[in-house]
Design a protein around this nucleic acid. Structure first.
Lengths: 341, 341
DNA sequence: CTGAAAGCGCTTACAG
DNA sequence: CTGAAAGCGCTTACAG
C-alpha cells in the first residue's frame, strides 16, 4: 500500500512501446490536432494498457505553469466556507486546476504577510481568499480574488456581498406596519457585513423610519442574544434584522426570555437559511444565499485573471432570496401607536 | 499584478552572489548542519536580500516527493467538513505538507474510480477522504485515510466514529424514567451513523428497554420531522435520539405540531452542538463533537502512514461531550405507567 | 507530420 | 566542509 516507489512509467517507455518518439506522445497528451490518426491510435493503445498519465510535476517544471490555485481558509471555517469551497473546487477541477487549501492563523498583518509569501513562493498561479484580507493586492505577484474582503476593492463584486436585499426586507416589514428597527450586524471586517449595515442605514433614512441602532455582532447566537437583552424595555423596536440565522435565533431567545412574543410583539429576520431555522419555533424568516454560486463566480473570476482573460460577466441570477416564515408578522399596535406620535 | 513571468531567481544566482556553489545553497535550505557558520551567513544575507525561496516544483521533481496531500470533499460539503478540514489543514501545514481539495461527484462507483485515479496519477503522497468511499484501499498506490468510511475497515478508528456516548445518553434518559425510545439515524453509508445505530440497538437490548424502532434519516431536519410525524399516536415513545441537531429540530417541530410538549411529553437529543440549537426553544440537548480534533487525528494518521511511521496513538481525550439542555426532562407519567405494565 | 537537442531548477551521489 | 556532474520527466523551439 505504501509502495510509492513503484517504477513510474515514463513518456519514453510509452513512446518505445508505441514505436514513436517521446515528443509525439507529448503531443498526444497536449491534444495537438496534427497527429496522424494511425499514430494517435498506437499511442492510445499503449497508454490505456499501461494506464499512463504524464507526470504533472515535470510538466509544470517545464511550462512554469503549476495548474494550482490556493484557497485561503480561516482557521475556524464555517458552513459558509464549505459551500463556497464546494462551488469553487468543482469549477477549478472542470477548468483543469487543482485547488489547494491553506489555513492561515494570526492577526490581520501576519495573515497578509503569509498570503504574500504564498503568492511569491507557493507555486500557485492564483489565490482565492475566503476570508477578509488586509492586503494591497497590487503587491502580489499572482492574482488574488477575495470574498468578503477587508477593504473596498471588491465592492464592485456586487454578487459576493450583495446587500440590496436588506432594502427589500425592510420594505416588506414596512408593508406590515413596522417603523422601529434594530440591525444586528456581522463583523465589520467582512464586506458583506459592512454592506448590509450600510444598506440598512441608508434605507432607514430614505424611508424615514426609526432605527434604534446597529448592534455589533459576530454572526454568533450569543451576539444576537446580547443585542436584544441590551435593548431598553421602552425602545419600541418591533423588527430585528440580523446578519445571520444564529444571531436571529439568539435574538428570538432573548426576546422570549424578556416576555416579548415573537412574532406578535417583535419580528425577526435571519440570514443564510440554515436547515435548523426552518424547524425552529417560530420558524425563522431568512435570506437564502446561493453560496455555491458565489464560490463558482469567485473562482471563475480568478481563473480568468490568471489566464489573462476578461473576467466573466457576473451572473445576474439572484443570489439572495427572501424567505418569509413564522418569525415575521404585522407590527403590534404598540408599534403603530408610536408611529402616530 | 499578473506579471507572473517576472524573472525567477534561481539557486545559481544566489550562489553566485554569495560566492558559493549552488549545492551549498541547496544544503542551506535543506538545513544541513555541517555548513560553516560563515558560509551560512553569507547565504542568509543574499537570501533575505533577494527574498529567494527554492522552487518547490523543481525540488519535488528531483526528490519524487510532492509534499502534497489530497482531501476528498463531497460535492455539497457541510459544516462538519469545514471543521474537519480546518483541523487537518493546520496539521498538514505544520508538518510541511500542502493539502489540496478535490471534490468528487457521481455515484459511489464513479467516485471510487476517480479516487484511485488521483491516487495513481495525481501526484499526491496520500489521500484523506472526508466522505464515504466504496473502495478497496489495498488497490491504492498511496495511503488513504477515510473518515466516516463506507465499509468497516475504519471501525478501529474509534475516535472518528465514536458512538459509545449513545449509551451514556440512553443511561441518562433511563435515570430520568424513560423506557420507550426512538432513534432517528443518519445515512448508513457513514460509519459514524451506522455505529450510533448499532450502539443504540445494543444498549436498548442490554438494558431491557423498548425501542419503537430506528427511523432512516439523512441528517436533515426534514428526516427528523418525518420520523416523528410518522409515529403512531399510541406508540408510547418518550425519548428521541437523533443523529444530528437538524434532525432533532425537525423532530421537535413535528412533536409540537402534534400537540406533544417538549420536553414534558417527549425528550429529544440532537448531535453536533450547532450554535443555533443552544438558542432554540426548547434549547437542544446535544453532543458536542471536537471535529477539529478529528480532522487533526485523521491527517496525523495519514502523514504517519505516508512517512512509513507508526500511526500515532489516537488521543484519549474525549471527543464527544454530552450537553443537557431544555429539550430533555423526566419521562411523563404516561411513560412511567407503560413501564409498570 | 515527426524526431534530436536543450533545458526547466533543483537534489543526489561522488570527489576532493 | 564544499564543488563538478548527472539526471528527475517533461515541453519547447528547431530541423527534417
Amino acid at each position: 500500500m505504501t509502495d510509492v516507489g513503484a517504477p513510474r512509467i515514463t513518456i519514453h517507455e510509452v513512446a518505445r512501446r508505441a514505436g514513436v518518439s517521446h515528443q509525439t506522445v507529448s503531443r498526444y497528451f497536449r491534444r495537438i490536432e496534427s497527429l496522424k490518426p494511425a499514430t494517435r491510435q498506437k499511442i492510445e493503445a499503449v497508454v490505456s494498457e499501461l494506464n499512463y498519465r504524464p507526470n504533472p510535476v515535470a510538466r509544470s517544471m517545464r511550462t512554469k505553469r503549476s495548474g494550482r490555485l490556493a484557497t485561503i481558509l480561516p482557521s475556524t471555517p464555517s458552513l459558509l466556507h464549505s459551500q463556497l469551497l464546494g462551488g469553487a473546487a468543482a469549477i477549478a477541477q472542470a477548468e483543469g486546476y487543482l485547488l489547494e487549501v491553506v489555513t492561515i492563523v494570526g492577526d490581520a498583518r501576519t495573515r497578509a504577510d503569509r498570503v504574500l509569501e504564498l503568492a511569491a513562493n507557493g507555486g500557485f498561479e492564483g489565490i482565492l481568499s475566503l476570508s477578509p484580507l488586509a492586503l494591497d493586492l497590487e503587491r502580489s505577484p499572482v492574482p488574488i480574488v477575495a470574498t468578503g474582503d477587508y477593504d473596498d476593492q471588491f465592492r464592485s463584486q456586487g454578487e459576493l456581498a450583495d446587500a440590496s436585499v436588506v432594502r427589500n426586507i425592510i420594505e416588506h416589514l414596512v408593508s406590515l406596519g413596522h417603523r422601529d428597527f434594530l440591525h444586528i450586524a456581522g463583523p465589520q471586517t467582512f464586506t458583506s457585513a459592512r454592506n448590509r449595515k450600510l444598506v440598512y442605514e441608508t434605507t432607514i433614512e430614505e424611508l424615514g423610519l426609526r432605527s434604534y441602532g446597529v448592534a455589533d455582532g459576530d454572526w454568533s447566537g450569543q451576539s444576537g442574544y446580547d443585542a436584544v437583552q441590551g435593548l431598553p424595555a421602552t425602545c419600541g423596536v418591533t423588527a430585528v434584522i440580523a446578519a445571520s440565522d444564529q444571531a436571529a435565533m439568539g435574538a428570538i431567545r432573548a426576546a422570549l426570555e424578556r416576555g416579548w412574543r415573537v412574532p406578535d410583539d417583535i419580528s425577526v429576520f435571519g440570514w443564510d437559511d440554515y436547515d435548523m431555522g426552518r424547524y425552529a419555533t417560530p420558524a425563522l424568516s431568512t435570506v437564502a444565499v446561493d453560496r455555491d454560486a458565489q464560490g463558482r463566480e469567485a473562482i471563475l473570476k480568478l481563473i480568468a485573471t490568471v489566464r489573462g482573460e476578461e473576467p466573466p460577466e457576473p451572473s445576474h441570477d439572484p443570489i439572495n432570496r427572501i424567505i418569509i416564515r413564522e418569525s415575521v408578522a404585522p407590527a403590534p399596535r404598540r408599534g403603530a401607536q408610536d408611529t402616530s406620535s
